[in-house]
Write a protein that binds this DNA or RNA. Structure first.
Length: 929
RNA sequence: GGGCUCAUAGCUCAGUUGGUUAGAGCACCGUGUUGAUAACGCGGGGGUCGGUGGUUCAAGUCCACCUGGGCCCA
């Protein structure tokens, strides 16, 4: 080694290859690959194989696009929790999943196939859907990995796997077995030209002109006294079964032309205008609740129509009296259920009135479908109403009306046979609600939320008229009787567990039933397959049995389900119902929910905000650690704001962290724990103080993590880097690190403490920002980019017992407080007067009263220690009388400035070949020489 | 319209069972350093705690209403 040529070269300045700039976009993927090839996930599991397990069960994302930033947030939280729990010694198996079936995929694929003008059947459609789903699984998996998510990707689950599909069917078989499944009508959107049911997503709202009519319903038992309804779908009147009024609104009796018409008070003016009443008076008034219970006569069918109350009745349009046809509207349907009305729908698949003995002869066979010249059914109904005098007024009405996305024709709401699960039979609802008592919620209000849903939801409609899903395995005979048989479903599940659900679509009923012994009463009948598929909430909702019970490394109930707060209504609930039916208990011990990502103004992010909000759009700009730091800085239980400003803040926090770690690595470049470690008992006070603060940090961060309050952990870490390290410890120790002899005990003491601080820090940030933590760890271990064992294989840091060092710690704390409150103030005033620049130019005098707490402290501490803590060249003491209070004064240091240590000393000593330096530096240089 | 929920400095967050002039980090402004330098130190400004009313000796903290967000329904 060449002799140093300049004084600066005799200093032990920081030295490290740890790059100042992350270059995360390039270097993070390399580290990700390193983790993958070195099988970090498997090693983490092996490390804790005998530890207690912590099972976080992954809610499967839907596989129809790039990973959204909200989904990224979810996966980042899961990964952070698992990395933390693993560091705490838990076995943390993580089997990620994918939700594959469902309308959005079927919709997209259908569009694509239709554009190619090819004919296709359900089997081909399903094949395309499967390919579609598979391709996005590949995309999303790689995007999740890029976020730093560690998982058992070999054992990921897919709801379209045959084995999984079989479990869905077995869940359905359990429902059937317990007598919960029944068939009933429910209105769905129906496209008459396409002869198919439509989902909300397949509906387009287009401008449409409908007849708007006011129709009177005579109150039973009263002469010339009527309720008046308003509707824009005359064709639904034959299915009218009730009239709904608002319970708390006022209704008035309008007397005109010798008759009485009951109308909501607020609607009287418009109504009388529409009807052209030149002269009318207002008679009695009452509330809607008082009208309820009366019977009215259907205007042209011999049938009563009851007056009922409904909260959804509005005063904006119409008459405040709503025509209810339970078979032709969702509100009507729910009102029907509430009042035990028949879900009546006298239409066939072609939208033509059926002859059921009630429909007037002149209507039977007429289609309700609207064509250019209107709907035949509407015309005929209007004719009947006109001739009977029930029609009070009529005009054309322009509004938005739902249309079929394919045929562009108006759709109708039409009740069809659906499959339902009864939620009250076998006390199922009560059992679910009780089951929640054993479940913990973060935040606690999640319990209220799911409880409300459980109490209020009507029976579960589980059938969908779709192809991309798991079929409802029922058979019909020619008379429409249904074969619903749990044994048969189990039999089919066994077949499907091998070949998948495509079997149902590609085979005939005979082929499917081959090998199954039908019940005697069903033998010999000609059977056809059912056409419906199961609600996809059953798919994901039975993951507890398809995944948690089918893989030996996990178990049920899971320790944690963690999803967005929308899943109180979705997955948390569907999982609970299915689990309660199958196993009599909830599938989770704790439910943790996060809010939704919103923009800088706190509003929901939408496509109109501009750029697509994919995880990749952020990762390719900022890197995964910055995105993760953002996630973990936010209180995720409420709305989570995201903006450029907020991400820039995460960038700055990341840079601070990076610089802090880089400084420490540089300071530790010549330190070996094996050779140089100084035991606690021999450490200097400032080092002990820092270790004390590090203990506090460990406690605070651990506490925050245990409560899943990562944002508190990040705040503690930021404060630690800034307040404890950067402005205090790092600043103080520079002098001894740089200027002392490399092996000086004081210097080695500091390096010993710094090693502990450094390792603690990177272990604490490991769950949140794994890339930089592992990078710093590798440089700390080997001085190079990678080392043998990843940081992920290290345990969570433990507090250090400082023992007798506590006294020194509190001394240092008092002196640092004095520095904050008095010393810096004195220095700043000198600086303002341009008398000093850096603090080492100063000489501080402490004026201590005889009754001051510092009297005792100063007996234990040397003035050199004080000068070091204050980062000044010298400190002297003066005594003040009791009761005076402590004072601090400062002036420019006297003597000569040492060009090596920059401290002012009375005189310099000459050392060849470097020239004049302070006596302390001279001793150091003598050893080098 | 309903259920659940949120609202503290420019930003992200603390603020224990109601009790002295509401805190932190970042940002901002000023300044020092140039041996953490696309870094670091020191100093400073900045909030009538969304609004209104109430309970109380005392409220960011309890109650009511209102305003504005979010999720889920309708």
């Amino acid at each position: 080694m060449n002799a140093p040529e300049k004084l600066k070269d005799t200093l032990n300045l920081p030295k490290t290859n740890f790059p100042m700039r992350a270059n995360a976009v390039v270097r993070e993927p390399a580290r990700m690959n390193h983790w993958e090839t070195s099988e970090v996930y498997a090693k983490m599991q092996k490390k804790n194989q005998n530890g207690p397990s912590f099972v976080l069960h992954d809610g499967p994302p839907f596989t129809n696009g790039d990973v959204h930033v909200g989904t990224a947030l979810n996966k980042i939280l899961k990964d952070s929790i698992l990395r933390y729990k693993n560091a705490r010694g838990f076995r943390t198996p993580y089997l990620p999943g994918w939700d594959c079936h469902g309308l959005p995929i079927e919709h997209k694929v259908t569009k694509k196939l239709r554009a190619s003008k090819k004919e296709f059947d359900a089997v081909e459609l399903r094949k395309e859907c499967e390919e579609f789903s598979k391709s996005y699984i590949e995309t999303q998996r790689s995007q999740f990995k890029r976020l730093g998510v560690l998982a058992d990707w070999e054992k990921e689950y897919k709801t379209m796997n045959p084995a999984y599909e079989a479990e869905i069917l077995r869940t359905f078989a359990d429902f059937v077995d317990q007598g919960l499944v029944y068939r009933s009508k429910k209105p769905v959107y129906w496209s008459i030209p396409c002869q198919t049911a439509l989902a909300e997503a397949e509906i387009e709202y287009l401008d449409h002109t409908s007849p708007s009519i006011f129709v009177r319903f005579q109150i039973k038992g009263e002469q010339d006294e009527y309720l008046v309804i308003w509707t824009t779908t005359p064709w639904t009147l034959p299915a009218n079964l009730a009239v709904a009024v608002h319970p708390r609104e006022t209704y008035s009796e309008v007397q005109a032309n010798g008759s009485s018409y009951w109308i909501a008070e607020q609607r009287v003016n418009e109504f009388t205008q529409e009807c052209g009443f030149s002269d009318h008076t207002i008679g009695r008034t009452c509330t809607g609740a008082e009208l309820a219970g009366k019977a009215t006569l259907h205007p042209f069918i011999d049938r009563d129509s009851m007056v009922v109350t409904a909260e959804y009745v509005t005063m904006d349009t119409g008459t405040g009296c709503v025509h209810i046809a339970p078979g032709h509207g969702l509100d009507d349907y729910l009102t029907g259920l509430e009042h035990d009305l028949e879900i009546y729908c006298p239409l066939d698949d072609g939208g033509k009135y059926l002859d059921d003995g009630q429909i007037p002869k002149e209507l039977v066979g007429l289609s309700v479908l609207e064509k250019a010249d209107g709907s035949k059914a509407n015309h005929a109904v209007l004719e009947i109403l006109t001739s009977s005098g029930a029609l009070l007024a009529q005009k054309q009405y322009n509004h938005q009306y739902p249309h079929c996305w394919r045929s562009k024709s108006p759709v109708i709401f039409r009740a069809m046979d659906q499959w339902f699960v009864s939620l009250d039979k076998e006390d199922l609802r009560t059992r679910c609600i009780n089951g929640l008592k054993e479940v913990s919620f973060t935040p606690e209000w999640g319990r209220n939320r799911i409880h409300g849903f459980l109490e209020a939801r009507p029976d579960w409609c589980i059938s969908r008229q779709r192809s991309w899903g798991v079929p409802i395995p029922v058979f019909f005979d020619d008379d429409g009787n249904v074969l619903l048989d749990s044994k048969l479903i189990e039999f089919l599940a066994a077949k499907i567990s091998q070949d998948g659900c495509n079997l149902w679509f590609s085979q005939t009923a005979e082929e499917l039933l081959a090998g199954y012994e039908l019940p005697d009463s069903w033998k010999g009948r000609k059977l056809t397959k059912g056409q419906d598929t199961l609600d996809v909430w059953i798919d994901s909702g039975c993951s507890h049995r398809a995944v948690l019970r089918e893989n030996e490394e996990v178990s049920c109930p899971a320790d944690l389900y963690l999803e967005g707060s929308d899943q109180h209504r979705g997955w948390f609930q569907s999982s609970l119902w299915t689990s309660m039916v199958s196993t009599q208990s909830a599938p989770y011990r704790r439910i943790l929910t996060h809010g939704f990502v919103v923009n800088g103004e706190g509003k929901k992010i939408s496509k109109s905000d501009g750029k697509p909000q994919t995880a990749d759009s952020f990762v390719t700009k900022y890197g995964a650690d910055v995105l993760r730091l953002w996630v973990c800085s936010e209180d995720f239980r409420r709305d989570i704001p995201l903006s450029d400003e907020i991400l820039e803040q995460a960038v700055r926090a990341y840079r601070t962290l990076r610089n802090t770690l880089r400084f420490q690595l540089g300071a530790l470049h010549d330190f070996s724990q094996a050779e140089h470690l100084v035991p606690i008992e021999q450490m200097s006070p400032i080092d002990l103080w820092t270790l004390g603060k590090t203990n506090d940090l460990i406690r605070e961060v651990t506490d925050a993590c245990e409560k899943y309050e990562f944002h508190r952990a990040i705040q503690c870490l930021n404060r630690f880097c800034s307040g404890i390290l950067s402005s205090t410890y790092h600043d103080v120790i520079k002098d001894r690190l740089y200027t002392l002899d490399p092996n000086d005990p004081l210097r080695r003491s500091t390096q010993s403490a710094l090693t502990k601080v450094f390792e603690t820090l990177i272990k604490l940030i490991g769950p949140f920002t794994p890339y930089i933590a592992d990078e710093a760890w590798a440089f700390g271990q080997s001085g190079e980019e990678y080392c043998k064992d990843s940081l992920s294989l290290q345990d969570w840091p433990k507090e250090i017992d400082l023992g007798a060092g506590q006294i020194a710690v509190s001394d240092v704390q008092e002196l640092l407080d004095l520095k904050d409150s008095h010393v810096n103030e004195a220095l700043e005033s000198l600086r303002v007067k341009k008398e000093i620049g850096q603090s080492l130019d100063a000489w501080v005098t402490l004026c201590i009263a005889t009754d001051s707490k510092f009297v005792e402290i100063l007996k234990r501490r040397s003035l050199d220690e004080l000068a070091e803590l204050f980062i000044v060249s010298s400190v002297t003491l003066e005594n003040l009388p009791s009761g005076e209070g402590d004072k601090v004064t400062a002036c420019h240091a006297s003597g000569i400035r040492c060009p090596r240590s920059w401290r002012w000393v009375p005189e310099l000593v000459k050392v060849e070949p470097w020239g004049e330096v302070s006596p302390r530096c001279a001793e150091v240089l003598a050893k080098i020489g």
